[in-house]
């Protein structure tokens, strides 16, 4: 809670900073989500009704009201990646993480999502892990990335 207040105090009490606040706060949280208590605090600070805050969170795909894993993996599946075999990247992730689109691993380490274009079509296929983008992927590369992240945990 202290953390949210710290973030809030940086912004003017105006609705136009709502998305900035939500993004900054969510990024700072380990499980990358906004809880209903957070919504209530933000709503109170900005004077924006809770229904509107929820409306905003539910509209944007980068915002969530459900807890996610420590690493949110977003695999691009739009045409430029698809024709560069992004399916094999996604399938590899499903295989090694044993989860599907929108799910989180039991150890709360990874959440897998299919996402919209990451704008790295020149280096397709691409995926994003939290704020870091990985490009020119192959299934082998993906396996190494996941192993590295798993190792990082230890």
């Amino acid at each position: 809670m202290i953390l949210l207040n710290e973030i809030l105090s940086k912004y003017p009490k105006e609705q136009e900073y709502l998305i900035e606040i939500l993004l900054e706060y969510q990024t700072s949280k380990k499980n990358h989500y906004i809880s209903s208590e957070d919504v209530a605090s933000i709503s109170k600070y900005l004077g924006v009704p809770e229904s509107q805050v929820c409306s905003v969170i539910s509209f944007y795909s980068l915002l969530s009201m459900k807890p996610k894993g420590k690493y949110v993996i977003q695999v691009c599946h739009d045409v430029p990646c698809f024709v560069n075999d992004s399916t094999s990247i996604y399938d590899k992730l499903v295989e090694i993480l044993e989860i599907n689109d929108g799910e989180t691993t039991k150890d709360n380490l990874f959440t897998l999502e299919i996402t919209e274009c990451l704008g790295r079509c020149n280096e397709a296929p691409a995926m994003r892990v939290n704020n870091l983008v990985y490009v020119s992927l192959t299934p082998a590369k993906v396996e190494k990335i996941i192993n590295d992240l798993r190792g990082e945990k230890k």
Partner: peptide, 9 residues
């Protein structure tokens, strides 16, 4: 720039 296939911006 969200249009798939674009990365110029």
């Amino acid at each position: 720039e969200g249009e798939p296939g674009n990365f110029k911006d």
